[in-house]
């Protein structure tokens, strides 16, 4: 099995096919979208492939140490290029299966009840070092 991160972006991903911001949908369309996401997770649980899922707030700040003094911060930035909205971690047998699940998630319905065809970023996890190496 291999773990993959499915990254959802607020900003920074190529524009989806059905590109209407969520607060311009009808309430029923919002409900249908939410339901689709929950069903996706339930299905991935049922197939033994779901690991975890988290959503992030849009606010973010860069931080670094400045030696002895208090931490130095930069931001939050109103318009960063890339803004992650959340993720789902899956644990699957093959790369192809990971693509299949990502495509499935990307087809969540949006405005007009039509699939958003949103771009999701798929990132493989580093694996545990194998016990048997030769």
């Amino acid at each position: 099995m291999a773990k993959y991160l499915l990254l959802k972006h607020y900003r920074g991903a190529p524009a989806p096919v059905n590109d209407v911001p969520m607060d311009r949908w009808t309430p029923d369309e919002v409900t249908a979208h939410v339901q689709y996401m929950q069903d996706f997770i339930r299905r991935a649980e049922a197939t033994g492939e779901f690991v975890e899922s988290q959503a992030l707030l849009p606010q973010g700040t860069f931080v670094r140490s400045d030696g002895a003094g208090p931490p130095v911060t930069d931001g939050p930035f109103a318009e960063t290029k890339d803004l992650i909205a959340g993720w789902i971690v899956i644990d699957v047998e093959t790369y192809e299966r990971a693509l299949e699940l990502a495509a499935d998630l990307s087809a969540a319905p949006g405005a007009g009840g039509k699939p958003i065809h949103e771009w999701l970023e798929l990132r493989p996890f580093m694996a545990e070092m194998p016990t048997v190496t030769e």
Partner: peptide, 9 residues
């Protein structure tokens, strides 16, 4: 979000 959508529907 649903509230905003409702105002705009």
């Amino acid at each position: 979000t649903r509230q905003a959508a409702r105002m705009r529907t």
